[in-house]
Simulated scan of single mutants.
Amino acid sequence: MCEIFCFNSNTPKQVNECLQCFYNHSDEHPDGWGLANMQSNEFVIDKEPIKANCSEHLKDILSHPVVGKNVFAHIRLATVGEIISPNCHPFTEADDNNRSWMLIHNGTIFDYPKLDEYVEKENGDTDSERILLYIIDKVNEFEAKKGALSTIKERFNLLSEIVEDLSKNNKLNLMIYDGDLTYIHSNMRDSLYYLKNDEGFLVATTPLTDDIDWKPVELNKLFGLIDGKIIFESGEHENEYILTKEHEEYLSSLKRDGN
Rank of each mutant, 00 (worst) to 15 (best):
M188C: 10
F22I: 02
D125I: 11
I242Y: 02
A36V: 09
V15C: 11
D198H: 11
F5R: 04
L58P: 05
L77C: 08
R130H: 10
A204E: 05
T126S: 10
F232T: 10
L219P: 04
D127M: 12
M38F: 14
L222P: 02
E120Y: 03
R130P: 01
Y194N: 04
K145I: 02
H105L: 09
K168Q: 10
K245H: 11
M38H: 08
L222E: 07
E240Q: 14
S186V: 10
D137R: 14
H89K: 10
H29S: 03
F142A: 06
E141I: 10
I4R: 00
E249R: 14
W33L: 04
N169M: 09
K47R: 14
G200V: 08
D27P: 00
G228H: 08
I136Q: 00
I84V: 15
I162S: 05
G179Q: 02
P113E: 15
H237G: 11
D137H: 12
E17C: 05
I212G: 03
I61Q: 04
E236V: 12
V44G: 00
E122M: 12
I104C: 06
L181E: 03
S253Q: 14
N106D: 11
S167A: 12
E154Y: 08
S85N: 14
W101G: 07
I152Q: 03
G68Q: 07
D95P: 03
C18V: 07
N157K: 13
M1D: 02
F201P: 04
N173P: 04
E122R: 07
L19S: 03
E249L: 13
L243H: 04
N8E: 09
K114Q: 12
C18T: 06
K196P: 03
N123G: 07
T11P: 00
G147M: 02
F22P: 08
Y193Q: 00
S234D: 13
E56V: 04
D31N: 15
I184F: 03
I136Y: 06
I84K: 13
Y194A: 02
N259D: 13
V217E: 04
E129W: 02
S234K: 12
D127K: 11
T92V: 14
L19G: 00
D111V: 01
V44Q: 09
H57M: 10
C2K: 00
A73E: 06
K47A: 01
E122A: 06
N187K: 05
G228W: 00
S253A: 15
K229I: 05
P86M: 10
T11V: 12
L202Y: 15
K145L: 07
F201Y: 13
T126L: 04
V163G: 00
D165V: 03
A94D: 06
E238D: 15
C21K: 15
D190H: 09
G258M: 12
K69E: 15
S40H: 11
F43N: 03
K221F: 06
D257P: 00
S167R: 02
D125W: 03
A204Y: 01
N16W: 01
N37D: 07
E246P: 02
E164P: 01
